[in-house]
Design a protein around this nucleic acid. Structure first.
Length: 119
RNA sequence: AUAGUGCAUCGGUCUAUCGCGCGAUAAGGGAAGAAAAGCACCUGCUUUAAUCCCCUAUCACGAGGAAAGUCCGGGCAGCAUAGAGCACCAUCGCGGUUAAUGGCCGUCAGGCAGCAAUGUUUGGUCCCUGCAAAAGAGACGAGUAAUCUGCAAAGAGGAUGUGAUACGAGCAUACGAUGGGCUGCAAUUCCAAGUAUACCAGUGUCUGAGCGUUGCUCGCGCGAGCUGGAGGGUAGGAAGCAACAGAAGGACGUAGUAAUACGCCACUCAAGAUUAAUGAUAGACACCCAUUCAUGGGUACAGAACCCGGCUUAUAGAUGCACUAUUUUU
RNA sequence: GGAGCGCUAGUUCAAUGGAUAGAACGAUACACUACGGAUGUAUAGAUCGAGGUUCGAUUCCUCGGCGCUCUA
């Protein structure tokens, strides 16, 4: 049985850590998201999820996107765990339209698969 | 029955799988990570904080009527138990109501909309100080024409016209009454970690610099450092803050036209995050619309951030009560 | 979370409650030129939206929209 939990230790917190990630991390686009990542030696992978206020004015829409992206990560993260890869990750939503869960989940699967293939 | 007006209420439900936050209970486990210091002497070892932290199981709870805008008013916190004067700001028929308000209820007068129910909007004063482009003799202090008085000088007089308003008013920056101390939970308090005030200049130590939240002046309190240049370090955690509930809602009774008040009833009410929980997916039901009666589409506005009372704005649809107009029947 | 400020031609800025909202740059047309530039002449173009106060509103008040700043 795969472990599909998402405890707080897997969330990325702290201003300095976030700054470090965005300054030194590599990035690629997995539409409708942009992924910024930084490989780690060990420890749990930590994730940051972001829905920008500039694109979505209402808090309801941002909450919904954030929750869907979080669910997509939670259900797909076994790919990373199985490959024994550890990252600091940031997912930024970059599309102007709200996409449905299937699209986001598919994109998340592709993104994580690509990460496992990185050196 | 149709159309409308006012007041009030609700604003999806259930199941399955996976998941999140907070709390309680039970049984366990002993760490995680940052930075620094010390010992050693290049391989390392030791020590150390707030928060304690992690895992497992079960149970309970987990967004709104507007959580929104931040437009008012309070609670609460700090600053003299918040003090004085000036300045500033707000309110403005009358009466009531409240913890308080610019809100709410009742009511008076005028304007506007409507057949009506009703809705909407305006409402202190002109004594003092001021205001009005063009037009007009003249915009608040003078004065044009006819006419009258007078020997005359002059005085009285105020038409017509201009204009929104003309020896009478209007307006606010003026006056009056009433209210407001200022700042806001990033307030405020505590714990922990870390560094250096090295150096330069000015100023001051009771005849007192400077600081303390108020635009200024005082008053009051603290008081040996303070200001500028040039540097060093930190930005973690806890309380505030989530049932020791309260200006809380509801039913009933009494008073009142009403807002509301009082009494009574163990009737109801348990979110508390902080890179920020309250969810995701699938299915069924309910409601609405279309229809070829198989089915297809739609279900709004919108997400707590210390807490309350209002206002304003957004909102698919559903329900109840009262009233008005028209038509039909009795 | 809280506090404060702003919105005027395409752009940058003016305008004490008072006549037809002004200036510079830009745009368009014409002239000049073999063509273009420069220059000259002319033209078009705006008060964020909706109400209210006033004789009269860019200005004052209310509600909404958008943008910005400060604050541990």
């Amino acid at each position: 049985m795969m472990n599909a939990t998402f405890p707080k230790s897997e969330k990325l917190c702290g201003g300095q850590v976030v700054d470090h990630l965005y300054k030194t991390g590599k990035r690629f686009v997995a539409w409708p998201m942009r992924v910024t990542y930084l490989p780690l030696a060990d420890g749990p992978s930590q994730v940051l999820i972001w829905a920008p206020k500039a694109l979505f004015k209402h808090a309801v829409d941002r909450n919904r996107l954030r929750r869907q992206m979080r669910e997509a990560y939670r259900l797909n993260k076994h790919v990373l765990v199985d490959a024994d890869k550890h990252y600091h990750l940031a997912f930024n939503y970059i599309d102007k339209e709200m996409q449905d869960f299937k699209t986001i989940s598919k994109a998340m699967g592709k993104a994580l698969k690509r990460l496992t293939e990185e050196a």
